[in-house]
Structure formats: structure tokens, C-alpha cells
Design a protein around this nucleic acid. Structure first.
Lengths: 210, 210
DNA sequence: TAGATTGTTAATCGATTAACAATC
DNA sequence: TAGATTGTTAATCGATTAACAATC
């Protein structure tokens, strides 16, 4: 691509996969064209926001007509780097790790968990789907060999910072963390946290308190 | 509690569990008092934001001193309704569901997965940890019997809307959805989506594109 | 007391939404 | 063409941060 346009805000980026998902549904319904109005209706978003989000990546709607679904699909994948395979390192072969490797595999073919690591000698050598659990120490080796570009941390909170540091040291700059821990990362690394406990605790606020 | 204070914004609510997590760590370190400055350092947040967040729930810092860790712990739990047991219905006994029931159980004792449901006759009757998978049809029954207050949707996207409707029909108003689907909910229901695929796709944007 | 830190107001920053000219 | 819908500017709304008086 080359010129990364004027720093797009994370809020915008996080909506793009949602648009992409809708586009898949539209394709299945053989809908060829869609307006921001209709997209907004389906996603419960403001149409102006959708237009603005998309327009940050160039003009690709047709005035009076709307967006071409096939092109939108192509464009969104291009923006999100989903036009090529992305190799993911999964660290942690516990219940969560195994579920993730199953789950993620199904969903999106271009993002592939290519290697699974653990530190527990009991787990190293075991099979997780078609992958063999490797020693977390060998991360840098695998990093190169398999061109690992993303990391998923699925270890207990107590080990998360160490694993994170190892990922960064191995040159992985994009990390999804499932451990309930406040991880420290250097500049230039992208970290996203997603933790069930935190989500549930926040949701608990909305319970009717009798 | 009674008077829910002047509508607190979701951004504030979502930070509270993070504060709570820090407070647990402080307790383990036998730290009795902490300033917003120190909290901000540890969490990489602006101290003013932390003070403002906490102040929305009353004055409980001491000027010139900071916050009492034990009281902060108590107060945060009270705000988040974590001062009593919360019974959670888990719908979907696949890999993800099983991982969640294992995972969540560990983390936080007051939020308990109390019942697991599925629609697949193969799965109904099977054990998930100490729980027996029930028929999703019987949700309303269990809802009453076990005072289920929250729902977790861990079914495939194709079934998610139906399950969501069933949860709502059974009177469950707080839902955490793991399926990659844009669910429709009526007013008064709180839904939070957390979907690995969406997260990974958004993160993919930040890969260096060579 | 003097130093530290809260609670809160005001200032800033960023994100969402409304409005509309351009144009398909 | 007339109606529809984009792309974009301006207006609004909300969230974050700075600053500081109050006070422990």
C-alpha cells in the first residue's frame, strides 16, 4: 500500500470488521449494492458515521446509488490486510487456547493459528488440532520459520507479562491478550485486551440491584 | 442501593473492573493506601480520570493521603454488584462454552456459571465440569429455579439471534455474546459483544504491510 | 505546619451526527 | 430528468485532561 493515510482512529478501525461481516451476509443474499442508510439500519449505526468511516480510505461509493458490495468486500479486506494469509502464534495450550485454536480456524481463513506454544513440559509435544505444541523458548525460531506476525496470549495472568515480553523480543508487534493482566508494552507494539472476567464484571453493574 | 446516580457512562463502568483488579494486586502486596497518581502509573491511565471516575460514586479518597485500598475494594465490589453471587446461564456447550465455564469459574467467585444449555440432543445430559447440559428449551424453568441473571451466548453465529431472543424472553437482561453476529435487542437489555474474529481482524490493520 | 492529594471546574480534545452541495 | 445518496463541512456531543482551591 505505501502511504498510510492520516492516522485513522482506533474506533474507526474497530468498526471495519463489522462492516466486513455485514458485507459477507449481503453477498450470501446476492445483494449487489447497498446504501449507508441500509447498512446503518442493519447494524444500528448512524449512516453518516459509516460514510465517514469508509471515506477515510478513499471514495468508493456511487452518489445516488450506494456502495458496490463486491468492491466493498475487496476494499475492506485490503485495508485490514486480509488479502493475504496472516500467521498467528498462540501461546498457551490450556482450555482457552484449545478453544481458540478451534474457533478461530473456522471463522476466517486468512488469519491462521500456525503455531501453538506452552511452557509446561506435559503439554509440549501434544497435539492441538493438527498442530504440535512447541516449547515457548523456541518462539524466535518459529517466528522466522513460519513468518509469525501476530500473537495471542492465552496463559494465566501470572505468566502473561513474561510471555508478552517474549513475543515482543521475538519481533511480534501485534498482540491479542486474553489474560486478566495490565501488560506493559514498548512503543510501536499494538496490544488489545479481551478478558471475560472484566467483561462480566462490567456487565454486572447493569443488573437490577434489588 | 436505591438511587442510581446520574447515569454513569459505559467508558467509566468498563474501567472499574480494571481498578478492582489493581486493588487485588495491592492487597496482595499489603499496600494499604494508594494515590490516583500511583494508580495511573501502574495502569497507564491519567490520574485525573481515575479520580473523576471514582468520584462519580461519592467521595471516598482522603485529601493529602489517597485511597484506602480495603475500602476501595469494598466500594468497587458494591458498585459492580459483586458483593453477592451472580448466577450466569451459559448457552452453548461447544469448545468455547467448555473453555469459558472452566475459565470463568477460576477467576471470580461471585460470578458463577450455574447452568449450561445446548440444543444438540447429543450434548444434552453430558457433563461440563460439575454441571449437566440442559435443553435450551428449559431456559425459563432454570431461570426461575436458579435465579439466573446473566447470559453468555457461545453458540455459532447462525443460532445467536434465536438464543438471544430466548434469553430475553426468559427475562435475562444482561448478555455477553461471543458469536460473530449483530444481535437485535429490545430497550432495557444490556448486550456486550466480544468476538475473537473481529478483534483479530481489527488488529490485522496494524500489521506492517510490506 | 508544610507537603501531598483529593474532588471538581474549566479547557481541550476527539468522536459522532446533522446538513447539504455535488453528482450519479 | 428527478430522486437518491455520497462525500464532506460544520455543529454537537461526550470524554479526557489540566489546573487548582479545599483540606487531610
Amino acid at each position: 500500500m505505501g502511504n498510510k493515510e492520516l492516522r485513522i482512529s482506533p474506533s474507526v478501525i474497530r468498526r471495519l470488521p463489522v462492516y466486513l461481516r455485514l458485507v459477507q451476509e449481503l453477498k450470501e443474499l446476492s445483494i449487489a449494492t447497498i446504501s449507508s442508510q441500509e447498512m446503518g439500519d442493519r447494524l444500528d449505526l448512524n449512516p453518516a458515521q459509516i460514510r465517514k468511516d469508509l471515506a477515510s480510505f478513499g471514495e468508493f461509493g456511487r452518489k445516488g446509488v450506494g456502495y458496490n458490495v463486491a468492491y466493498l468486500d475487496w476494499k475492506l479486506r485490503q485495508i485490514l490486510n486480509l488479502d493475504r494469509q496472516i500467521n498467528v502464534a498462540l501461546i498457551g495450550a490450556g482450555h482457552l487456547g484449545i478453544a481458540l485454536s478451534n474457533y478461530a480456524r473456522f471463522q476466517s481463513e486468512r488469519i491462521k493459528i500456525t503455531a501453538v506454544f506452552d511452557r509446561d513440559p506435559q503439554k509440549i509435544g501434544q497435539k492441538v488440532g493438527s498442530l504440535t505444541v512447541a516449547d515457548a523458548q523456541d518462539l524466535p525460531l518459529y517466528r522466522q520459520k513460519y513468518n509469525l506476525q501476530m500473537g495471542i496470549i492465552a496463559v494465566p495472568a501470572s505468566a502473561a507479562q513474561e510471555v508478552c515480553d517474549e513475543l515482543v523480543a521475538a519481533g511480534i508487534k501485534v498482540i491479542l491478550n486474553f489474560a486478566p493482566a495490565n501488560l506493559r508494552i514498548p512503543k510501536g507494539v499494538h496490544l488489545r485486551n479481551t478478558d471475560v472476567t472484566t467483561e462480566l464484571q462490567a456487565l454486572a453493574y447493569y443488573l437490577e440491584n434489588e
